[in-house]
Nucleic acid binder design. Structure first.
Length: 423
RNA sequence: GGAGAGGUGACAGAGUGGUCGAAUGUGCAUGAUUGGAAAUCAUGUGUACGGUUUUCCGUACCGGGGGUUCGAAUCCCCCCCUCUCCGCCA
């Protein structure tokens, strides 16, 4: 959510943001609602002040005296009026709030113009995409793939997009998770093991409700949601809290399974490990002082990149253009790994700075030493990393002539051997 | 899942219909005192929104929501959470 004061004082900034993100929002309607809401609020508050004053007078009067009874009669009318006006205020306020929630976060000045994913800027490229194994092929075509990554049985037991990982497949998944977590710890992120189902308030605070309800699995009895990312429980950790300024920045990481319904995709995007309904991911979160958010975004991105470098996987970094930037983000980098068999880039991380947009909605603040007043923190998050696509790239890029997969040196201590075998 | 108790400001803890944003204590901040500290004394110490704008003023908030009433922290209803006991269970 945007700062209502910003909207009032600099509507042109908000208008420019909407244009840069290529969104269609009727800003004038929002402004009109805002004015209406404020006018109505003043009216109601004046009425309540009147009520309060009368209340104090009546406390001094003798109960049951003629003056007292007269006052009761008089205030009955005011009371009815307050009730009616409050009902109206409630309606307008709900509309106003709804309208405010349609306003996107302001893109950072460094975000390039553009409407489509093609207009994202290639920020950097690392590693040699031509240096992958000459035997690379799409991972689902690798002989024996189905034994270690059993989609058929997953579909029987649950549904499409819920594979079983078996044997060396399961072991490699665990190795990657452990490697990612250890690296995050080493970089100063405190490890957290959060709940993987959250309530509606938490989903709302990070913007997954109400608009993205369809992307989450829901429980029947309790109105809980399976998390689409660890960002959801982690960001909510400090919801409605005021932190010490000295405690900032706070770095946290978490491994969780992630659940996404993602209806509507098809084709090669959803083949094999490319897109699943349940997948494993290590997520990195930062709560920082507003002056540090972009320095922190760079170091967050660099941490994620470093994981791919250590895994010896070619990758590139995209700086998202205005039109491809999410609603809530001020700036975002996507990191894509090179999939040598499919000969395409696969997104394995998305590093975003939200500035105060999430924090305002979730009411996460810190007490500023200077003023002693609470201020909103800035939040950032990024994957470090999503497992299945890294897995896909590893299987493809490192496929040997004999059908085995070479394990990157850094993973060998975790995996316990130098080659993964499909036999 | 069943029975009972409870949820008040940073913390402890009063308050059962009116002058209560809320006693008191602790903590914290500033000042006095001191060579310095402790102790003591004094003053101050929530958040949000709106109006105004170097000052202030108004309104709201006593777990959440609804109701009764001229008026609710206080009465009624629903929900959530915590604790104790029982049941169940890894």
């Amino acid at each position: 959510m945007l700062d209502p004061k910003l909207l009032r004082e600099s509507p042109e900034l908000v208008r420019a943001a909407i244009a840069k993100k290529h969104l269609d929002v009727d800003l004038d309607a929002v402004l009109a609602l805002d004015a209406q809401w404020r006018a109505l609020l003043s009216e109601v508050e004046a009425l309540r002040a009147k009520q309060k004053a009368a209340n104090n007078e009546m406390a001094a009067l003798k109960k049951g005296s003629p003056e007292f009874l007269a006052k009761v009669q008089e205030m009955k009318a005011v009371s009815a009026q307050v009730k009616a006006e409050e009902a109206r205020l409630g309606e307008v306020e709900a509309k106003w709030r709804g309208a405010m929630l349609t306003l996107p976060n302001i893109p950072h000045a460094s975000v390039p113009e553009g409407r489509t994913p093609e207009q994202n800027v290639v920020f950097s490229t690392h590693g040699d995409t031509t240096a992958v194994s000459p035997h690379a092929k799409s991972h689902w075509d690798i002989a024996g793939f189905d034994r270690l990554f059993d989609f058929a049985r997953g579909a029987k037991v649950t549904g499409a997009g819920f594979p079983f990982y078996v044997g060396d497949g399961a072991r490699l998944v665990r190795s990657l998770i452990q490697f990612f977590l250890n690296e995050a710890s080493r970089a100063g992120y405190q490890e957290v093991n959060p709940p993987v189902v959250v309530n509606a308030a938490s989903a709302t605070a990070v913007g997954q409700l109400p608009d993205k309800e369809g992307m989450m699995y829901q429980t029947v009895e309790d109105q809980f949601y399976l998390i689409p990312t660890a960002e959801t429980p982690l960001t909510n950790f400090f919801r409605d809290e005021i932190l010490d300024e000295a405690a900032l920045p706070v770095f946290r990481c978490a491994y969780t399974p992630c659940f996404r319904r993602e209806a509507g995709s098809y084709g090669k995007d959803v083949r094999g490990l490319n897109r699943l309904h349940q997948f494993d991911k290590v997520e990195l979160l930062k709560w920082v002082h507003p002056s540090q958010s972009y320095v922190e975004l760079d170091s967050l991105r660099d941490h994620a990149e470093n994981l791919l470098r250590q895994l010896e996987l070619p990758y590139r970094v995209l700086l998202m253009c205005g039109g491809d930037l999410g609603f809530t983000q001020a700036k975002k980098y996507d990191i894509e790994v090179w999939s040598g068999g499919q000969k395409r880039w696969l997104e394995v991380s998305s590093c975003s700075c939200f500035e105060a947009f999430q924090a305002r909605r979730a009411q996460i603040r810190f007490r500023a030493k200077e003023t002693g007043k609470p201020e909103l923190v800035h939040t950032l998050n990024g994957s470090g990393l999503a497992v299945p696509r890294v897995l896909a790239a590893l299987l493809e890029n490192n496929l040997q002539a004999d059908g085995r997969v070479r394990i990157p040196t850094v993973l060998v201590p975790y995996f316990g051997k130098e080659y993964l075998s499909f036999a």
